[in-house]
Nucleic acid binder design. Sequence first.
DNA 1: ATGAAAGCGCTAACAG
DNA 2: CTGTTAGCGCTTTCAT
Lengths: 337, 337
Amino acid sequence: MVKIADVAKEANVSVATVSRVLNKKGSVKPETCERVYKAIEKLSFEPNMSARNLRRNETRVILIIAPNITNPYYAHILAGIGDEAAKLGYSALIYNTAGNEERERSSMDMLKRKRADGAILLACNTDSLWVAEYAEKYPLVHCSEYVEKLDVPRVSIDNYKAAVDVMEYIIGLGHKKIATISSCNSYISTVLRLQGYKDTLKKHSLAMKKRYIAFADAEYSFKSGKTAAFDLLKQKDRPTAIFCISDTIALGAITAAKEMGLRVPEDVTITGFDDVDYTTMFHPYITTIAQPCYELGRESFKLLHACMSNKKEIDKKVILPHKFIIRESSAPISTCN
Amino acid sequence: MVKIADVAKEANVSVATVSRVLNKKGSVKPETCERVYKAIEKLSFEPNMSARNLRRNETRVILIIAPNITNPYYAHILAGIGDEAAKLGYSALIYNTAGNEERERSSMDMLKRKRADGAILLACNTDSLWVAEYAEKYPLVHCSEYVEKLDVPRVSIDNYKAAVDVMEYIIGLGHKKIATISSCNSYISTVLRLQGYKDTLKKHSLAMKKRYIAFADAEYSFKSGKTAAFDLLKQKDRPTAIFCISDTIALGAITAAKEMGLRVPEDVTITGFDDVDYTTMFHPYITTIAQPCYELGRESFKLLHACMSNKKEIDKKVILPHKFIIRESSAPISTCN
DNA sequence: ATGAAAGCGCTAACAG
DNA sequence: CTGTTAGCGCTTTCAT
């Protein structure tokens, strides 16, 4: 292994000088600088990060705590984080925790061991209060989901507003019997979207019926969406519109409707949420809320970087704009209904 | 920051002893050991990885070089690598390179800087000979795609055999006019699958027609699959079956067929490859080759770990079994065709 | 079974 | 502008 001392010898300077040119800190005479570069080149020297990290007490590595990188929603966020991080010379250590607190904590412990400088948490439940004990010691940011009670920096969309947008649209279409398929997880987004559903109903003096509220599983699986939709639609007084809190659920709902002989959107309007890859792979293309996943990731890293650099005057609650996209799975209520 | 010296003082022993109990190496009297544990607990000591890495000259971190983690195929492999790595106490640094050689190389340079102990390359082109210069110095393994000319350890399925399996099946269904949609990338899997297509045709004395071979874009995009299928199917003497080298392409092809008023599989048989998430989200469910992505990832890590541990007596060319799944998008040729 | 001490490769304070 | 040197926190050899 070639080290700084070797380069120094080759260039006939001291290690301090080599370090200076390496880090472009302090002043070095151009010719000396040149000699050092030549030596580095000649010996193909590469600085040892472990040594540098130990000395500087920083790693230029961040942690990403994700429940499931296989989910395209998270995958896009990861891509955003990764690209932005790379720009500033950071690398990302990704941990797949399946939402398991044990694994989340042990991943976060890499912070204590100085394996990383900060962390981005992708999907904390609303009740993950344990995050606080890390937040007070290390730079942390929540992306997309967060713990409401904690004052941890975060970036997300306005889930409540987005849900209201969809509901106002559906109601504007003339629908009165509007159901929702929520999820049995306890993410803040789930809570907020359900609240948006309820509040908008109320605002328009539409009764909220328990039997119009169904729940898919925690992972928004296609299958559970299908099952939930089936339960909703088999009711005598079936809903004419279903507000689903994810695209996969909406996809499952559309499939259920079709299998029951119902046309989408003629017989039932179905909307999704997130706008992941497959919303336009099949007809009907799904009416949905598009989340700026990639941007969410980028902003998260920027925010984390600000925290790691101890910038004080920054906004710790970043809300990115969502986009409501009307496509084919929604339509005005038909007169036959 | 609490360090080993603090623990040593607290436990009334030397740093060497603390290190011994920390690493369970060398012998320490049970009672001393106990005292040390108590001290560690009391001070909530956590070893500094940078220091350890520097001293041990290893990081327990591996690099994953992926073109696009947003692609579910890669995402599943990543999950497999990550889980297996975690089991052995390794973390994964993931780099998204978009297939850009420059970025691939600069990511790999983390090996030189001792930021990681080895790397898994997910999608090298057949002509990425530059990999050789890293392979001779660092533990490396190719996963799923590889550079044929290089003797780098690798794990993948038998793409040639898989393609032959599909083709034999299609031919067995009575089809004579069989097209393929390949890709314009230069992955070994693409080459092998096309070869399997051609060879099987020949074996059955079926003419290989240039106009029956179409190409989707390098990323197997849905859109390019659709376009390619359209070109294939608009021919007067249109094919009655299309062997697509990816599921997204097959999805695009099915959409194209439908838009042209062709039924799948009644009018045209379409097969996919990989069996990613959305093969069974819509009808017709896609007949495809299932790749054991997650296992591919796990095996890759195991192989890499063997390399990093300098195990000599290991198989450096791991082939995992694929599975041929017959679903709804394929059927015997109809008599009308 | 335990301790003293050397040193991994780098940075940065200090001196010149 | 450049060099000397003291560590960063840990592991490990060599004594005892």
